[in-house]
Computed example of a mutant assay.
Amino acid sequence: MQKEDVLVLEPAGNTLAPQDSPAILRELTAEAGVSINGDAPWDIQVFDDDVYRLVLTKGSLGFGEAYMDGMWECDRLDQLFQRLLSSQAEEKIDNWSRLRLLGEILRHSLFNLQSSQRAFQVGEQHYDIGNDVFEAMLDPSMSYSCGYWHNASGLADAQQKKLDMICRKLELQPGERLLEIGCGWGGLAHFAAQHYGVEVVGITVSKEQQKLARKRCAGLPVAIELMDYRDLAEKFDKVVSVGMFEHVGPKNYATYFDTVHRALKDDGLFLLHTIGNSVTSPKTDAWIDKYIFPNGKLPSAKEIASVLERRFLIEDWHNFGPDYDRTLMAWWDNFEQAWPGLQEKYGERFYRMWKYYLMSCAGFFRSRQGQLWQLVLSKTERQLVYRSVR
Rank of each mutant, 00 (worst) to 15 (best):
I105Q: 06
Q374F: 10
D94P: 08
C183G: 03
N151H: 14
I166F: 15
A119K: 01
G38C: 07
L328Q: 05
A233T: 14
E199I: 08
P140E: 13
P22N: 10
D266M: 07
L106I: 04
D333I: 09
S360H: 08
Y253S: 03
L80Q: 09
V34H: 09
Y144H: 04
S143K: 10
F111I: 02
S115K: 00
Q125R: 15
V8G: 10
P340G: 04
A119H: 01
A189E: 08
L220Y: 06
V46T: 15
E381L: 13
T204Y: 08
I24P: 06
G202N: 00
E315I: 02
D267A: 08
D43K: 04
I224F: 03
E124W: 04
L172S: 06
Y356H: 07
A32C: 04
V201A: 05
I129Q: 06
C167E: 11
S35A: 08
D323F: 00
E348S: 12
K302E: 15
G249P: 11
F312N: 09
L358Y: 05
S367F: 12
L271V: 10
L271T: 13
F293S: 00
D132A: 05
E208M: 02
Q337R: 14
F81E: 03
E171P: 12
N112Q: 12
A189D: 09
R26A: 08
L77P: 03
Q88P: 05
Y253I: 03
R216L: 01
H261V: 12
W373E: 15
L99K: 15
Q209P: 03
F293T: 05
D5T: 12
G64L: 05
P322H: 06
A193P: 11
E234M: 05
A12Y: 10
G154D: 11
V385A: 13
G62R: 07
E180Y: 05
G64V: 04
N151G: 13
F320G: 02
R262L: 13
Q82F: 12
Y386P: 02
Y291T: 02
L313A: 11
V8R: 14
R310M: 14
E199K: 06
V248R: 05
M142S: 04
L102Q: 13
G130K: 09
A254L: 08
